[in-house]
Nucleic acid binder design. Structure first.
Lengths: 237, 237
DNA sequence: ACAAAAGTGTTCGTCTTACACCCATGC
DNA sequence: GCATGGGTGTAAGACGAACACTTTTGT
Protein backbone atom coordinates (compact mmCIF):
# COMPACT_ATOMS: atom_id res chain seq x y z
CA UNK A 1 0.00 0.00 0.00
CA UNK A 2 1.09 3.57 -0.59
CA UNK A 3 2.04 5.68 2.38
CA UNK A 4 0.21 8.95 2.53
CA UNK A 5 1.51 12.21 3.94
CA UNK A 6 0.21 12.67 7.48
CA UNK A 7 -1.08 15.72 9.35
CA UNK A 8 1.15 17.34 11.90
CA UNK A 9 -0.24 16.11 15.20
CA UNK A 10 -0.17 18.47 18.15
CA UNK A 11 -1.45 18.47 21.69
CA UNK A 12 -2.87 21.64 23.22
CA UNK A 13 -3.57 22.15 26.89
CA UNK A 14 -6.32 24.25 28.41
CA UNK A 15 -5.06 24.69 31.97
CA UNK A 16 -7.73 26.05 34.27
CA UNK A 17 -7.55 27.19 37.85
CA UNK A 18 -8.88 29.87 40.16
CA UNK A 19 -7.08 33.20 40.36
CA UNK A 20 -8.46 36.04 42.47
CA UNK A 21 -11.71 34.21 42.95
CA UNK A 22 -12.34 33.66 39.27
CA UNK A 23 -12.06 30.77 36.86
CA UNK A 24 -9.19 31.38 34.48
CA UNK A 25 -7.50 29.61 31.59
CA UNK A 26 -3.84 29.86 30.75
CA UNK A 27 -2.85 31.17 27.35
CA UNK A 28 0.61 31.81 25.95
CA UNK A 29 1.95 34.30 23.47
CA UNK A 30 3.22 32.60 20.34
CA UNK A 31 6.82 33.10 19.47
CA UNK A 32 6.53 31.83 15.94
CA UNK A 33 4.35 31.99 12.85
CA UNK A 34 1.58 31.41 12.21
CA UNK A 35 -0.23 33.85 14.44
CA UNK A 36 3.02 35.17 15.85
CA UNK A 37 2.52 37.31 18.99
CA UNK A 38 -1.07 36.28 19.33
CA UNK A 39 -2.38 34.28 22.25
CA UNK A 40 -2.90 30.56 22.06
CA UNK A 41 -3.20 27.51 24.24
CA UNK A 42 0.15 26.06 25.23
CA UNK A 43 0.90 23.02 23.16
CA UNK A 44 3.43 21.07 21.20
CA UNK A 45 4.02 18.40 18.65
CA UNK A 46 3.49 14.76 19.56
CA UNK A 47 6.71 12.71 19.62
CA UNK A 48 6.16 9.12 18.65
CA UNK A 49 9.60 8.24 19.92
CA UNK A 50 8.96 9.68 23.39
CA UNK A 51 5.24 9.56 24.13
CA UNK A 52 3.72 6.19 24.83
CA UNK A 53 0.22 7.53 24.26
CA UNK A 54 -1.69 10.79 23.98
CA UNK A 55 -1.97 11.26 27.74
CA UNK A 56 1.75 10.83 28.18
CA UNK A 57 2.37 13.33 25.43
CA UNK A 58 0.13 15.86 27.16
CA UNK A 59 2.08 15.41 30.40
CA UNK A 60 5.39 15.87 28.61
CA UNK A 61 4.22 18.99 26.87
CA UNK A 62 2.86 20.52 30.07
CA UNK A 63 6.25 19.98 31.63
CA UNK A 64 8.24 21.33 28.71
CA UNK A 65 6.16 24.40 28.07
CA UNK A 66 5.00 25.30 31.55
CA UNK A 67 7.31 23.47 33.93
CA UNK A 68 4.44 21.75 35.69
CA UNK A 69 2.86 18.33 36.00
CA UNK A 70 -0.88 18.97 36.24
CA UNK A 71 -2.64 16.63 38.66
CA UNK A 72 -5.66 16.20 36.45
CA UNK A 73 -5.50 16.01 32.70
CA UNK A 74 -8.37 14.87 30.57
CA UNK A 75 -8.90 14.71 26.85
CA UNK A 76 -11.33 17.27 25.58
CA UNK A 77 -11.67 17.20 21.81
CA UNK A 78 -9.76 17.05 18.57
CA UNK A 79 -9.72 19.63 15.82
CA UNK A 80 -8.07 19.12 12.50
CA UNK A 81 -8.16 20.76 9.13
CA UNK A 82 -6.11 22.16 6.33
CA UNK A 83 -4.93 25.70 6.89
CA UNK A 84 -3.67 25.49 10.43
CA UNK A 85 -0.10 24.26 10.15
CA UNK A 86 2.24 25.75 7.57
CA UNK A 87 4.97 23.26 8.37
CA UNK A 88 2.87 20.26 7.41
CA UNK A 89 1.95 18.78 4.04
CA UNK A 90 -1.08 20.58 2.65
CA UNK A 91 -0.91 22.86 5.68
CA UNK A 92 -2.84 20.17 7.51
CA UNK A 93 -2.73 20.19 11.31
CA UNK A 94 -4.48 18.06 13.89
CA UNK A 95 -4.69 19.18 17.52
CA UNK A 96 -5.86 16.98 20.36
CA UNK A 97 -6.95 19.34 23.12
CA UNK A 98 -6.58 18.43 26.79
CA UNK A 99 -8.17 20.10 29.76
CA UNK A 100 -6.04 20.41 32.88
CA UNK A 101 -7.27 21.57 36.27
CA UNK A 102 -5.37 22.64 39.34
CA UNK A 103 -6.50 23.94 42.75
CA UNK A 104 -6.10 27.65 43.33
CA UNK A 105 -2.57 28.66 44.12
CA UNK A 106 -1.02 25.24 43.72
CA UNK A 107 0.51 25.78 40.36
CA UNK A 108 2.98 28.27 38.99
CA UNK A 109 3.57 27.77 35.31
CA UNK A 110 6.64 29.38 33.82
CA UNK A 111 7.29 30.17 30.19
CA UNK A 112 9.21 27.24 28.71
CA UNK A 113 10.34 26.31 25.24
CA UNK A 114 8.99 28.53 22.47
CA UNK A 115 6.72 30.44 24.83
CA UNK A 116 7.02 34.24 24.75
CA UNK A 117 4.67 35.00 27.61
CA UNK A 118 1.97 33.65 29.88
CA UNK A 119 -1.39 35.02 30.80
CA UNK A 120 -4.39 33.94 32.82
CA UNK A 121 -7.54 34.69 30.87
CA UNK A 122 -10.71 35.17 32.90
CA UNK A 123 -13.63 32.98 31.94
CA UNK A 124 -16.02 35.90 31.78
CA UNK A 125 -13.61 38.28 30.14
CA UNK A 126 -12.10 36.38 27.23
CA UNK A 127 -9.60 37.73 24.79
CA UNK A 128 -11.10 39.01 21.54
CA UNK A 129 -10.70 36.76 18.52
CA UNK A 130 -8.43 39.37 17.01
CA UNK A 131 -5.78 38.70 19.65
CA UNK A 132 -5.98 34.92 19.65
CA UNK A 133 -4.58 32.25 17.38
CA UNK A 134 -6.37 29.53 15.43
CA UNK A 135 -9.74 28.68 16.92
CA UNK A 136 -8.34 28.74 20.42
CA UNK A 137 -10.70 31.42 21.70
CA UNK A 138 -13.57 29.11 20.85
CA UNK A 139 -11.88 26.14 22.45
CA UNK A 140 -11.27 28.07 25.65
CA UNK A 141 -14.90 29.12 25.84
CA UNK A 142 -15.93 25.55 25.26
CA UNK A 143 -13.59 24.24 27.95
CA UNK A 144 -14.92 26.81 30.40
CA UNK A 145 -18.46 25.71 29.64
CA UNK A 146 -17.48 22.10 30.26
CA UNK A 147 -15.90 22.86 33.62
CA UNK A 148 -18.91 24.90 34.69
CA UNK A 149 -21.34 22.26 33.61
CA UNK A 150 -19.47 19.61 35.55
CA UNK A 151 -19.34 21.82 38.60
CA UNK A 152 -23.02 22.68 38.44
CA UNK A 153 -23.81 18.97 38.35
CA UNK A 154 -21.47 18.42 41.30
CA UNK A 155 -19.41 16.08 39.16
CA UNK A 156 -16.38 17.72 40.59
CA UNK A 157 -13.59 18.24 38.16
CA UNK A 158 -11.18 16.46 40.45
CA UNK A 159 -8.11 18.48 39.73
CA UNK A 160 -9.66 21.75 40.82
CA UNK A 161 -10.29 20.52 44.32
CA UNK A 162 -7.64 20.29 47.02
CA UNK A 163 -7.02 17.02 48.83
CA UNK A 164 -8.57 18.24 52.06
CA UNK A 165 -11.07 21.04 52.43
CA UNK A 166 -13.88 22.41 54.52
CA UNK A 167 -17.39 22.42 53.15
CA UNK A 168 -17.37 26.18 53.16
CA UNK A 169 -14.23 26.24 51.07
CA UNK A 170 -15.69 23.73 48.64
CA UNK A 171 -18.80 25.80 48.23
CA UNK A 172 -16.77 28.95 47.70
CA UNK A 173 -14.77 27.14 45.05
CA UNK A 174 -17.89 26.08 43.19
CA UNK A 175 -19.25 29.59 43.38
CA UNK A 176 -16.04 30.95 41.96
CA UNK A 177 -16.08 28.47 39.09
CA UNK A 178 -19.71 29.14 38.29
CA UNK A 179 -19.69 32.83 39.02
CA UNK A 180 -22.98 32.55 40.90
CA UNK A 181 -23.88 32.10 44.58
CA UNK A 182 -25.17 28.77 45.86
CA UNK A 183 -27.46 27.93 48.74
CA UNK A 184 -25.53 26.50 51.66
CA UNK A 185 -28.19 24.11 52.87
CA UNK A 186 -28.97 22.68 49.45
CA UNK A 187 -25.32 22.36 48.62
CA UNK A 188 -24.62 20.34 51.74
CA UNK A 189 -27.69 18.17 51.41
CA UNK A 190 -26.67 17.16 47.90
CA UNK A 191 -23.17 16.32 49.04
CA UNK A 192 -24.64 14.21 51.84
CA UNK A 193 -27.33 12.46 49.80
CA UNK A 194 -24.99 11.57 46.98
CA UNK A 195 -22.17 10.66 49.34
CA UNK A 196 -19.72 12.82 47.43
CA UNK A 197 -17.55 13.73 50.41
CA UNK A 198 -16.52 12.06 53.62
CA UNK A 199 -15.33 13.77 56.77
CA UNK A 200 -11.86 13.05 58.01
CA UNK A 201 -12.00 11.64 61.53
CA UNK A 202 -11.07 14.15 64.18
CA UNK A 203 -9.62 16.70 61.79
CA UNK A 204 -10.73 20.26 62.39
CA UNK A 205 -9.98 23.64 61.03
CA UNK A 206 -9.27 25.90 64.02
CA UNK A 207 -7.84 29.32 64.52
CA UNK A 208 -10.32 31.29 62.45
CA UNK A 209 -12.52 33.91 64.01
CA UNK A 210 -15.51 31.64 64.06
CA UNK A 211 -16.68 28.15 64.79
CA UNK A 212 -14.19 25.44 63.74
CA UNK A 213 -15.16 23.36 60.73
CA UNK A 214 -14.77 19.71 59.94
CA UNK A 215 -12.34 18.68 57.22
CA UNK A 216 -13.50 16.58 54.32
CA UNK A 217 -12.12 14.78 51.31
CA UNK A 218 -13.79 13.61 48.12
CA UNK A 219 -15.12 10.13 48.66
CA UNK A 220 -13.44 7.52 46.54
CA UNK A 221 -16.56 6.31 44.79
CA UNK A 222 -17.95 9.73 44.07
CA UNK A 223 -18.50 11.60 40.82
CA UNK A 224 -17.97 9.26 37.91
CA UNK A 225 -17.38 11.21 34.76
CA UNK A 226 -19.47 10.89 31.64
CA UNK A 227 -17.10 11.90 28.89
CA UNK A 228 -16.12 9.32 26.31
CA UNK A 229 -12.64 9.24 27.79
CA UNK A 230 -13.88 8.68 31.33
CA UNK A 231 -15.95 5.81 30.08
CA UNK A 232 -13.08 4.29 28.17
CA UNK A 233 -10.74 4.52 31.12
CA UNK A 234 -13.12 3.01 33.63
CA UNK A 235 -14.14 0.23 31.26
CA UNK A 236 -17.45 1.89 30.37
CA UNK A 237 -20.35 2.84 32.60
CA UNK B 1 13.32 23.04 13.26
CA UNK B 2 13.57 19.31 12.82
CA UNK B 3 10.60 17.44 11.43
CA UNK B 4 9.52 14.59 13.60
CA UNK B 5 7.95 11.36 12.43
CA UNK B 6 4.20 11.56 12.81
CA UNK B 7 1.61 9.03 13.94
CA UNK B 8 -0.57 7.39 11.35
CA UNK B 9 -3.88 9.24 11.67
CA UNK B 10 -7.06 7.30 11.12
CA UNK B 11 -10.75 7.96 11.44
CA UNK B 12 -13.07 5.27 12.79
CA UNK B 13 -16.83 5.38 12.57
CA UNK B 14 -19.29 3.95 15.07
CA UNK B 15 -22.46 3.78 12.99
CA UNK B 16 -25.52 3.19 15.12
CA UNK B 17 -29.09 2.52 14.15
CA UNK B 18 -32.07 0.41 15.13
CA UNK B 19 -32.40 -3.11 13.74
CA UNK B 20 -35.24 -5.38 14.82
CA UNK B 21 -36.14 -3.01 17.62
CA UNK B 22 -32.68 -2.88 19.12
CA UNK B 23 -29.84 -0.43 19.14
CA UNK B 24 -26.97 -1.78 17.07
CA UNK B 25 -23.51 -0.70 16.00
CA UNK B 26 -21.86 -1.63 12.74
CA UNK B 27 -18.59 -3.52 12.84
CA UNK B 28 -16.53 -4.86 9.96
CA UNK B 29 -14.27 -7.84 9.61
CA UNK B 30 -10.70 -6.79 8.99
CA UNK B 31 -9.08 -7.96 5.81
CA UNK B 32 -5.55 -7.13 6.87
CA UNK B 33 -3.15 -7.36 9.77
CA UNK B 34 -3.09 -6.43 12.54
CA UNK B 35 -6.10 -8.23 13.99
CA UNK B 36 -6.87 -9.84 10.65
CA UNK B 37 -10.34 -11.46 10.56
CA UNK B 38 -11.35 -9.84 13.80
CA UNK B 39 -14.14 -7.31 14.08
CA UNK B 40 -13.45 -3.59 14.20
CA UNK B 41 -15.10 -0.27 13.56
CA UNK B 42 -15.01 0.74 9.93
CA UNK B 43 -12.33 3.34 9.36
CA UNK B 44 -9.56 4.57 7.22
CA UNK B 45 -6.53 6.76 6.98
CA UNK B 46 -6.93 10.51 6.80
CA UNK B 47 -5.91 12.00 3.44
CA UNK B 48 -4.52 15.49 3.78
CA UNK B 49 -4.78 15.97 0.02
CA UNK B 50 -8.48 15.10 -0.08
CA UNK B 51 -10.04 15.89 3.28
CA UNK B 52 -10.55 19.53 4.16
CA UNK B 53 -11.03 18.70 7.84
CA UNK B 54 -11.74 15.79 10.13
CA UNK B 55 -15.48 15.86 9.49
CA UNK B 56 -14.94 15.75 5.74
CA UNK B 57 -12.57 12.84 6.19
CA UNK B 58 -15.19 10.95 8.18
CA UNK B 59 -17.73 11.50 5.43
CA UNK B 60 -15.31 10.28 2.77
CA UNK B 61 -14.45 7.19 4.73
CA UNK B 62 -18.09 6.34 5.38
CA UNK B 63 -18.67 6.53 1.65
CA UNK B 64 -15.61 4.51 0.68
CA UNK B 65 -16.02 1.75 3.21
CA UNK B 66 -19.78 1.53 3.52
CA UNK B 67 -21.20 3.24 0.47
CA UNK B 68 -23.29 5.61 2.56
CA UNK B 69 -23.39 9.27 3.60
CA UNK B 70 -24.62 9.27 7.20
CA UNK B 71 -26.96 12.17 7.97
CA UNK B 72 -25.48 12.78 11.38
CA UNK B 73 -21.83 12.44 12.18
CA UNK B 74 -20.27 13.72 15.35
CA UNK B 75 -16.83 13.48 16.80
CA UNK B 76 -16.63 11.19 19.78
CA UNK B 77 -13.09 10.84 21.08
CA UNK B 78 -9.51 10.29 20.06
CA UNK B 79 -7.28 7.41 21.05
CA UNK B 80 -3.63 7.23 20.26
CA UNK B 81 -0.66 5.22 21.42
CA UNK B 82 2.26 3.15 20.37
CA UNK B 83 1.41 -0.43 19.52
CA UNK B 84 -1.65 0.01 17.36
CA UNK B 85 -0.33 0.61 13.88
CA UNK B 86 2.44 -1.56 12.48
CA UNK B 87 2.73 0.54 9.33
CA UNK B 88 3.64 3.71 11.23
CA UNK B 89 6.91 4.86 12.80
CA UNK B 90 7.21 3.42 16.29
CA UNK B 91 3.99 1.54 15.63
CA UNK B 92 2.20 4.73 16.68
CA UNK B 93 -1.39 5.16 15.58
CA UNK B 94 -3.94 7.85 16.32
CA UNK B 95 -7.64 7.25 15.72
CA UNK B 96 -10.29 9.95 15.83
CA UNK B 97 -13.57 8.17 16.46
CA UNK B 98 -16.83 9.47 15.05
CA UNK B 99 -20.32 8.48 16.02
CA UNK B 100 -22.85 8.25 13.19
CA UNK B 101 -26.57 7.76 13.65
CA UNK B 102 -29.22 6.84 11.15
CA UNK B 103 -32.96 6.21 11.51
CA UNK B 104 -34.06 2.60 11.40
CA UNK B 105 -34.16 1.16 7.91
CA UNK B 106 -32.80 4.22 6.13
CA UNK B 107 -29.33 2.97 5.61
CA UNK B 108 -27.87 -0.04 3.88
CA UNK B 109 -24.12 -0.15 4.21
CA UNK B 110 -22.25 -2.41 1.84
CA UNK B 111 -18.74 -3.77 2.22
CA UNK B 112 -16.39 -1.40 0.43
CA UNK B 113 -12.65 -1.13 0.12
CA UNK B 114 -10.70 -3.46 2.40
CA UNK B 115 -13.80 -4.65 4.21
CA UNK B 116 -14.28 -8.41 4.40
CA UNK B 117 -17.70 -8.42 6.01
CA UNK B 118 -20.29 -6.37 7.86
CA UNK B 119 -22.20 -7.06 11.00
CA UNK B 120 -24.68 -5.26 13.21
CA UNK B 121 -23.68 -5.76 16.83
CA UNK B 122 -26.47 -5.47 19.39
CA UNK B 123 -25.87 -3.01 22.19
CA UNK B 124 -26.78 -5.53 24.87
CA UNK B 125 -25.03 -8.44 23.25
CA UNK B 126 -21.57 -7.19 22.33
CA UNK B 127 -18.83 -9.23 20.73
CA UNK B 128 -16.30 -10.66 23.16
CA UNK B 129 -12.95 -8.93 23.31
CA UNK B 130 -11.37 -12.02 21.82
CA UNK B 131 -13.16 -11.42 18.52
CA UNK B 132 -12.59 -7.69 18.28
CA UNK B 133 -9.64 -5.58 17.22
CA UNK B 134 -7.75 -2.89 19.11
CA UNK B 135 -9.86 -1.35 21.87
CA UNK B 136 -12.87 -1.17 19.61
CA UNK B 137 -15.10 -3.26 21.87
CA UNK B 138 -14.58 -0.65 24.57
CA UNK B 139 -15.24 2.20 22.19
CA UNK B 140 -18.46 0.61 20.99
CA UNK B 141 -19.67 0.19 24.56
CA UNK B 142 -18.79 3.77 25.28
CA UNK B 143 -20.58 5.03 22.18
CA UNK B 144 -23.66 3.04 23.12
CA UNK B 145 -23.60 4.56 26.59
CA UNK B 146 -23.37 8.03 25.08
CA UNK B 147 -26.33 7.48 22.78
CA UNK B 148 -28.41 6.09 25.60
CA UNK B 149 -27.52 8.88 27.94
CA UNK B 150 -28.49 11.47 25.34
CA UNK B 151 -31.75 9.69 24.67
CA UNK B 152 -32.62 9.37 28.34
CA UNK B 153 -32.09 13.11 28.73
CA UNK B 154 -34.24 13.70 25.65
CA UNK B 155 -31.32 15.39 23.98
CA UNK B 156 -32.23 13.52 20.88
CA UNK B 157 -29.33 12.24 18.89
CA UNK B 158 -30.63 13.95 15.78
CA UNK B 159 -29.54 11.40 13.24
CA UNK B 160 -31.51 8.57 14.80
CA UNK B 161 -34.79 10.39 14.38
CA UNK B 162 -36.67 10.62 11.08
CA UNK B 163 -37.68 14.02 9.69
CA UNK B 164 -41.34 13.51 10.45
CA UNK B 165 -42.76 11.18 13.03
CA UNK B 166 -45.68 10.52 15.31
CA UNK B 167 -45.24 10.82 19.06
CA UNK B 168 -45.91 7.15 19.40
CA UNK B 169 -43.13 6.33 16.95
CA UNK B 170 -40.74 8.67 18.75
CA UNK B 171 -41.48 7.02 22.06
CA UNK B 172 -41.01 3.55 20.57
CA UNK B 173 -37.68 4.68 19.16
CA UNK B 174 -36.50 5.91 22.54
CA UNK B 175 -37.60 2.70 24.16
CA UNK B 176 -35.68 0.70 21.61
CA UNK B 177 -32.55 2.75 22.15
CA UNK B 178 -32.78 2.51 25.91
CA UNK B 179 -34.08 -1.01 26.07
CA UNK B 180 -36.65 -0.01 28.70
CA UNK B 181 -40.31 1.04 28.50
CA UNK B 182 -41.29 4.68 29.06
CA UNK B 183 -44.47 6.23 30.39
CA UNK B 184 -46.52 7.80 27.63
CA UNK B 185 -47.91 10.66 29.62
CA UNK B 186 -44.61 11.69 31.17
CA UNK B 187 -42.86 11.38 27.85
CA UNK B 188 -45.32 13.69 26.15
CA UNK B 189 -45.39 16.20 28.96
CA UNK B 190 -41.63 16.57 28.80
CA UNK B 191 -41.72 17.06 25.06
CA UNK B 192 -44.40 19.70 25.53
CA UNK B 193 -42.82 21.53 28.46
CA UNK B 194 -39.41 21.70 26.86
CA UNK B 195 -40.82 22.51 23.42
CA UNK B 196 -38.74 19.78 21.83
CA UNK B 197 -41.18 18.99 19.04
CA UNK B 198 -43.71 20.92 17.02
CA UNK B 199 -46.71 19.51 15.23
CA UNK B 200 -46.91 19.89 11.49
CA UNK B 201 -50.05 21.78 10.54
CA UNK B 202 -52.80 19.58 9.20
CA UNK B 203 -50.61 16.54 8.70
CA UNK B 204 -52.03 13.30 10.01
CA UNK B 205 -51.11 9.69 9.99
CA UNK B 206 -54.17 7.82 8.72
CA UNK B 207 -54.92 4.34 7.52
CA UNK B 208 -53.90 2.47 10.63
CA UNK B 209 -56.43 0.44 12.57
CA UNK B 210 -56.78 3.06 15.23
CA UNK B 211 -57.16 6.76 15.84
CA UNK B 212 -55.06 8.91 13.48
CA UNK B 213 -52.10 10.70 15.00
CA UNK B 214 -50.63 14.11 14.44
CA UNK B 215 -47.25 14.35 12.74
CA UNK B 216 -44.40 16.17 14.43
CA UNK B 217 -40.88 17.30 13.72
CA UNK B 218 -38.05 18.25 16.04
CA UNK B 219 -38.33 21.92 16.80
CA UNK B 220 -35.47 23.97 15.48
CA UNK B 221 -34.36 25.36 18.80
CA UNK B 222 -34.66 22.10 20.66
CA UNK B 223 -31.99 19.90 22.18
CA UNK B 224 -28.68 21.69 22.08
CA UNK B 225 -25.86 19.26 22.47
CA UNK B 226 -23.31 19.46 25.24
CA UNK B 227 -20.28 17.76 23.75
CA UNK B 228 -17.18 19.83 23.13
CA UNK B 229 -17.78 19.53 19.41
CA UNK B 230 -21.37 20.70 19.66
CA UNK B 231 -20.20 23.71 21.59
CA UNK B 232 -17.46 24.47 19.12
CA UNK B 233 -19.79 24.24 16.17
CA UNK B 234 -22.53 26.40 17.61
CA UNK B 235 -20.07 29.00 18.82
CA UNK B 236 -20.27 27.81 22.44
CA UNK B 237 -23.23 27.56 24.75
C1' DA C 1 -68.89 -4.11 19.10
C1' DC C 2 -64.06 -4.47 19.67
C1' DA C 3 -59.13 -3.89 19.43
C1' DA C 4 -55.56 -0.75 19.29
C1' DA C 5 -53.25 3.21 19.64
C1' DA C 6 -53.89 8.44 20.31
C1' DG C 7 -54.23 11.67 23.59
C1' DT C 8 -55.40 13.82 28.47
C1' DG C 9 -55.86 14.25 33.60
C1' DT C 10 -55.01 13.27 38.39
C1' DT C 11 -52.73 11.66 42.30
C1' DC C 12 -48.85 11.02 45.03
C1' DG C 13 -44.30 11.14 46.43
C1' DT C 14 -39.66 13.03 45.81
C1' DC C 15 -36.42 16.41 45.08
C1' DT C 16 -35.16 21.65 45.04
C1' DT C 17 -35.37 26.16 46.69
C1' DA C 18 -35.37 29.72 49.75
C1' DC C 19 -35.13 31.08 54.05
C1' DA C 20 -34.81 30.95 59.01
C1' DC C 21 -32.61 29.55 62.82
C1' DC C 22 -29.01 27.78 66.36
C1' DC C 23 -23.83 26.87 67.39
C1' DA C 24 -19.04 27.69 68.42
C1' DT C 25 -15.22 30.43 68.14
C1' DG C 26 -11.84 34.74 68.18
C1' DC C 27 -11.70 39.34 69.15
C1' DG D 1 -21.07 40.88 73.42
C1' DC D 2 -20.87 40.46 68.67
C1' DA D 3 -19.34 39.47 64.14
C1' DT D 4 -18.40 35.49 61.37
C1' DG D 5 -18.81 31.44 59.28
C1' DG D 6 -20.24 26.40 60.50
C1' DG D 7 -24.06 23.60 60.65
C1' DT D 8 -29.29 22.20 60.67
C1' DG D 9 -34.33 22.41 59.97
C1' DT D 10 -38.58 23.47 57.49
C1' DA D 11 -42.42 25.10 54.54
C1' DA D 12 -43.66 25.90 49.69
C1' DG D 13 -43.34 24.65 45.32
C1' DA D 14 -41.61 22.33 41.13
C1' DC D 15 -41.00 18.10 39.00
C1' DG D 16 -41.55 13.24 37.70
C1' DA D 17 -43.64 8.36 38.03
C1' DA D 18 -47.56 5.69 37.85
C1' DC D 19 -51.98 4.94 36.61
C1' DA D 20 -56.67 5.66 35.02
C1' DC D 21 -59.35 7.45 31.75
C1' DT D 22 -61.56 9.24 27.26
C1' DT D 23 -61.26 9.53 22.05
C1' DT D 24 -61.03 8.05 17.34
C1' DT D 25 -60.14 5.09 13.94
C1' DG D 26 -60.28 0.24 11.04
C1' DT D 27 -62.14 -4.17 10.98
Amino acid sequence: MPTYPMPLVRIEIALQTIVDGELVTLMVRREQAPYRDRWALPGGVIRVDQDRDLDAGAQRIALERLGITPPYLTQFCAVGSAGREPRAPHDWGLSVVYRALAPAGTIAPVAGKRVAGLRWVQADNPLPASHTAFDHALIVASAVAATRQQTAALEFPRGLIPERFTLGALQRLCEEVLGTPLDKSSFRRKLRDRKLVESIEGAQQRGEAHRPSAIYRLSSGGSIGTTPQDRLETGFA
